[in-house]
């Protein structure tokens, strides 16, 4: 049963992921990305981590994608829909993709240690949320804090870059939204 669900969710996720790239209209792309994120949240539920699933919806769907759509709605979408993403021919892109694909194939077929790395270390715990918070705030406290400091630096960088001579209210707002 679990496997059927996985196949269903994965297929929809891949389909909507493809639509993100294929759709001409930026709004349609963004909405397909929303669908893709929701499928990934469902995959987290299947893996037995409802907390990550809810966080996925909270952060990606509820905050990041809403801000994406907010920005897209400000743009002239009709003009954007007619410009090509890759302007001068698809041939170089195709070659790069081919190189990357052959590299991946080589890695998968030749490497002996890759599969050991990829094997999942599945541990079933009673209270996933509790274990997650314990490992975040006790076992791996230093990496967690370092990551948050890096995020803070990025945030301040964004403020400095976006700040023009006169501090308008909209700049303030965007940075505060990013702070979320």
């Amino acid at each position: 049963m679990e496997q059927q669900f996985f196949i269903l969710l994965a297929l929809v996720a891949i389909g909507s992921g493809l639509l993100v790239v294929i759709a001409r209209n930026p709004i349609h792309s963004a909405l397909s990305l929303v669908a893709c994120f929701v499928q990934i949240a469902a995959l987290f539920v299947l893996l037995g981590s409802p907390f990550l699933a809810v966080i996925q919806i909270f952060v990606y769907v509820g905050a990041i994608m809403v801000l994406f759509l907010f920005v897209i709605m400000m743009l002239d979408v009709r003009k954007e829909a007619h410009t090509r993403f890759i302007q001068n021919g698809v041939m170089p892109t195709f070659l790069v993709l081919l190189a990357l694909a052959s590299e991946l194939l080589l890695l998968l077929s030749q490497s002996s240690r890759l599969h050991a790395v990829m094997a999942s270390q599945r541990v079933i715990v009673d209270e996933p949320t509790k274990h997650l918070s314990l490992s975040l705030f006790r076992d791996f406290l230093l990496p967690f804090e370092v990551a948050s400091v890096i995020l803070l630096v990025a945030l301040i960088g964004a403020v400095v870059l976006a700040r023009s001579e006169d501090r308008t209210e909209s700049t303030q707002k965007t940075t505060e939204e990013a702070a979320k």
Partner: peptide, 17 residues
């Protein structure tokens, strides 16, 4: 569910779509 409150907040957040 264990994460009930978080679930409610997340779902009410996507009401904007």
């Amino acid at each position: 569910m264990n994460v009930g409150l978080l679930f409610i907040l997340a779902i009410s957040g996507i009401g904007i779509f």
